[in-house]
């Protein structure tokens, strides 16, 4: 998959915004959103939030997990644990990128948050790489992928499944 496609999936996550306009319920294919009342928080899909923000029709509220202290705790847990820990959001990387990219004025200490999230990402990526290497080298038949987000799984596509296919082909060809 393209990272853009994963982002498309991640944009369906709900976040809270504070609209600056009034409007009735909007009926979308995926469900109804609204009604919008200015200054009252409301939950909308991420893609809609970004869109409204770009038109300057709302203010985005920082998600609970996107605080410095909470992220530091997650980072420490990740460093200490040998396997993957549960991330606060299924699409944390996508939310971080979009929110910090388009709405950094609504999020205090955005740069620090960006750095910490990047660190968490790097720690998890290196864990993925070493566990993939162990899987291939020792001809394991399964690997534990608990708590991995789709974006992270996507980084080892397509090289891992293709490599495993080739190993299978070599094994299966007639002796």
């Amino acid at each position: 998959m393209n990272p853009d496609e994963v982002e498309f999936l991640g944009e369906k996550q709900f976040i809270t915004i504070i609209p600056t306009f009034n409007s009735n319920t909007i009926h979308l294919i995926t469900g109804d959103v609204g009604p919008f009342r200015a200054s009252l928080p409301i939950r909308v899909p991420l893609w809609m939030a970004i869109n409204l923000k770009q038109q300057q029709k709302c203010k985005i509220q920082q998600p609970d997990w996107m605080e410095i202290e909470a992220l530091e705790t997650i980072k420490e847990n990740e460093k200490l644990s040998r396997t993957f820990t549960k991330m606060p959001s299924e699409h944390y990387m996508i939310e971080a990128k979009l929110l910090l990219g388009f709405a950094s004025d609504d999020i205090p200490r955005a740069d620090e948050i960006r750095t910490i999230i990047k660190d968490i990402w790097d720690i998890r990526m290196s864990k993925i790489r070493s566990s993939v290497d162990v899987l291939v080298k020792n001809a394991g038949s399964y690997a534990a992928l608990d708590h991995l987000t789709i974006m992270e799984i996507n980084t080892i596509r397509p090289i891992l499944p293709h490599a495993l296919d080739q190993i299978y082909r070599i094994k299966a060809s007639p002796r």
């Binding site: 993939v132 290497d133 291939v136 080298k137 001809a139 090289i159 490599a163 080739q166 070599i170």
Partner: peptide, 13 residues
């Protein structure tokens, strides 16, 4: 063949 492929995979990645 299998051993070579498996060992070189890390380098490839």
């Amino acid at each position: 063949l299998l051993h070579t492929f498996r060992t070189r995979f890390r380098q490839l990645m």
